Simulated assay, not measured.
Amino acid sequence: MSHSKFLGVLVTVGEDGTIKIPLDKLETAGIEIGEQVEIFSNGEFVFIRAVNQFCDVCGINGNMTQVGNLKMCQNCIQTLYERAKQQDINNP
Rank of each mutant, 00 (worst) to 15 (best):
N42M: 11
I89L: 15
K5Y: 04
F47E: 02
T65R: 15
N91T: 14
V67W: 09
V9N: 08
R83S: 08
A50Y: 01
A29R: 09
L7F: 02
K20N: 02
D24E: 10
Y81T: 13
G34D: 10
I19P: 03
I21P: 01
Q66S: 11
V67N: 01
T12P: 01
V46D: 06
T12K: 14
K20H: 06
M72V: 15
T28L: 10
Q87P: 01
E27V: 11
N61S: 15
M64A: 08
E82M: 14
V51H: 02
N42E: 07
K20S: 10
D24I: 00
I48H: 02
G62V: 00
G62E: 00
M64P: 06
L80I: 12
Q86L: 08
T12G: 07
A50F: 07
K85W: 04
S2H: 04
V37F: 02
R49L: 07
G43E: 02
N69M: 12
Q87V: 11
I19W: 00
C58I: 06
Q36V: 07
G68M: 03
N52A: 03
G8K: 00
G30Q: 08
Y81W: 09
I31P: 07
K5F: 09
Q53C: 05
Q87A: 15
I33P: 08
D16S: 08
I48Q: 00
E15P: 06
E82P: 02
P22G: 02
T65D: 06
Q87E: 15
Q78V: 10
S2K: 09
N75K: 12
R83Q: 13
G8S: 03
E15G: 11
A84T: 09
Y81S: 13
E82K: 15
F54Y: 03
L10W: 05
M1D: 06
G34N: 12
Y81V: 13
I33V: 13
D24H: 12
E32H: 06
E27K: 13
N91G: 03
I19R: 01
Q66N: 09
V13D: 01
K71F: 12
V46F: 00
V51L: 12
N90L: 15
L7H: 04
S2Y: 06
F47M: 02
K5R: 09
C73A: 01
H3Y: 12
G8T: 00
V57C: 10
V9W: 01
V13A: 11
L7Q: 12
K5N: 10
L10R: 08
Q74E: 15
A29T: 00
I60H: 04
Q87Y: 15
L70F: 13
Q78D: 14
V13N: 03
K25M: 06
I21H: 01
C73K: 05
V51Q: 05
A29P: 04
V57D: 14
R49F: 02
D16E: 10
V57E: 13
M72A: 12
N52K: 14
G30N: 05
F40E: 10
Q36L: 10
P22W: 06
Q66C: 07
